[in-house]
Simulated scan of single mutants.
Amino acid sequence: MNRTSRRLILLGTVLVLAVVAVAATLRAVDRAAEKDRVQQGGPRVDSGKVTLAAPGRLLFRNMAWGPHRDELASVSAKDPSGPRLSSGVHCLRFHAARGTGICLQKRPGKLSDGYRAVVLDSRLREQRKYDVAGIPTRARVSPSGRSVAWTVFVGGDSYAVGNFSTRTSILDVRNGAMDGNLETYAFYRNGHRYQPADLNVWGVTFADDTHFYATVATGGRTYLVRGDRTAKTLKALHTNVECPSLSPDGTRIAYKKKVKGTDPDLPWRLYVLDLRTMRETATAEHTSIDDQALWSDGNHLVYQLPGDYGADLWTVSADGSGHPKRMTISALAPAFTR
Results as ranks from 00 to 15, higher is better:
residue 125 R to Y: 01
residue 99 G to M: 08
residue 136 P to I: 03
residue 151 T to R: 11
residue 137 T to D: 15
residue 102 I to S: 10
residue 117 A to D: 11
residue 117 A to C: 08
residue 128 R to I: 02
residue 139 A to D: 13
residue 120 L to D: 07
residue 139 A to N: 12
residue 132 V to A: 09
residue 116 R to D: 10
residue 108 P to F: 01
residue 133 A to F: 03
residue 120 L to N: 07
residue 102 I to L: 15
residue 145 G to W: 02
residue 136 P to S: 05
residue 110 K to M: 08
residue 140 R to G: 00
residue 122 S to A: 13
residue 115 Y to I: 01
residue 153 F to H: 13
residue 112 S to V: 02
residue 118 V to C: 04
residue 124 L to R: 12
residue 145 G to V: 03
residue 115 Y to C: 02
residue 151 T to W: 04
residue 107 R to C: 00
residue 141 V to I: 05
residue 125 R to F: 00
residue 132 V to G: 08
residue 105 Q to C: 01
residue 119 V to T: 13
residue 99 G to P: 06
residue 141 V to K: 09
residue 115 Y to E: 07
residue 153 F to Q: 14
residue 143 P to C: 02
residue 150 W to M: 10
residue 152 V to M: 07
residue 99 G to K: 10
residue 117 A to N: 09
residue 95 H to T: 08
residue 141 V to G: 04
residue 111 L to M: 07
residue 119 V to D: 13
residue 145 G to S: 06
residue 118 V to H: 07
residue 128 R to F: 01
residue 142 S to A: 10
residue 100 T to Y: 03
residue 131 D to A: 15
residue 150 W to D: 13
residue 104 L to M: 14
residue 103 C to R: 13
residue 142 S to P: 07
residue 132 V to H: 11
residue 114 G to D: 15
residue 94 F to H: 12
residue 97 A to F: 00
residue 110 K to C: 00
residue 138 R to H: 09
residue 105 Q to W: 01
residue 130 Y to M: 13
residue 144 S to G: 06
residue 102 I to K: 12
residue 136 P to F: 01
residue 104 L to I: 08
residue 139 A to V: 06
residue 143 P to I: 03
residue 153 F to V: 09
residue 109 G to T: 11
residue 130 Y to D: 14
residue 97 A to D: 13
residue 124 L to I: 04
residue 136 P to Q: 10
residue 125 R to S: 10
residue 96 A to N: 07
residue 94 F to M: 14
residue 153 F to M: 13
residue 115 Y to P: 04
residue 96 A to P: 04
residue 113 D to M: 04
residue 151 T to M: 06
residue 150 W to C: 05
residue 114 G to R: 15
residue 128 R to Q: 15
residue 108 P to M: 07
residue 126 E to L: 03
residue 142 S to N: 10
residue 128 R to K: 14
residue 111 L to D: 15
residue 98 R to G: 04
residue 127 Q to P: 03
residue 98 R to N: 15
residue 129 K to V: 04
residue 150 W to F: 09
residue 95 H to Q: 12
residue 98 R to S: 14
residue 129 K to G: 03
residue 126 E to K: 14
residue 112 S to N: 14
residue 102 I to N: 12
residue 126 E to H: 07
residue 101 G to R: 12
residue 152 V to I: 04
residue 122 S to C: 00
